[in-house]
Design a protein around this nucleic acid. Structure first.
Lengths: 131, 131
DNA sequence: CTATTATATGAGTATGTGCTCATATAATAA
DNA sequence: TTATTATATGAGCACATACTCATATAATAG
């Protein structure tokens, strides 16, 4: 039952823990997909797009005006979001209207918002309690 | 009530929508923080670390062994995760044990997992229904 | 005290990413 | 048909980022 020595003499301390973690680990493909999804959310422009679409469907043109970047840039970002099934679109005559693909996006953004707005709870040093 | 013309003659179609979206928009700081948080989650190594810590606290040494990268690399990543309050640590003698900071991380990863495992629902082309 | 151990940090580098510009496509309009 | 319009795409560049290596720090051990 090799229960590890507390003095890590050479780069593996708790073999049991590591082995257990290895057993529970997600496969590389899943980790990769997860990473791609979060990467997609980890960009200011794409977050603005998603936040806008959360409330109302919009076309490329509108989004470009809203973000203050070119339609090309918006289109590139929308492609990424489409590929990851984070947004969908529908055509109305000449215009493509984009919307969120499902509830997951809202949930993810919502939870992340909660996280960053949480006042550093838990017991970190306050650093700015005054006022 | 300027309800927009369907023929976008020059780069702004639905002025109403854009104006409304602008009113609802998150401030730049919040968007930036959100982006940083998702960026932190959008990396294979950090996701592996978080997934491991979700089940059990671990030290830098163990995580390095688990991921197959140097302790230095792990330490760099942990610093980022700490800065964003995604992980915490406690010291036991010479060893620092890291754990998730709160429930948000689990929730975020859980929802993202649901999203990527969802069988392209919604009405996209099936592409692989057989079996 | 000094030596050792676990972790942290800075610099440097190779790869990745988001934008712009130019061009292509797909649908409608004439 | 051809012309126009909305969006998509490819190439290229400027900047960001994840790692390794070398070194620094902080706590314990002797």
């Amino acid at each position: 039952m090799k229960q590890a020595r507390e003095t890590c003499d050479c780069r593996i301390i708790h073999e049991e823990k590591v082995a257990a973690a290895r057993r529970r680990a997600l496969d590389e493909f899943t980790i990769g997909e997860l990473s791609l999804t979060f990467k997609a959310l980890g960009d200011v422009s794409r977050l603005k797009i998603l936040w806008a679409l959360e409330h109302e469907e919009m076309c490329v043109c509108d989004l470009a005006a809203l973000l203050g970047i070119t339609e090309s840039a918006v289109s590139h970002q929308l492609r990424l979001l489409r590929t990851l099934r984070l947004v969908k679109n529908r055509r109305d005559r000449t215009i493509l209207y984009y919307r969120l693909a499902d509830a997951h996006v809202s949930q993810l953004v919502g939870i992340a918002l909660q996280h960053i707005q949480e006042p550093a709870a838990g017991g970190q040093q306050p650093e700015e309690i005054s006022r």
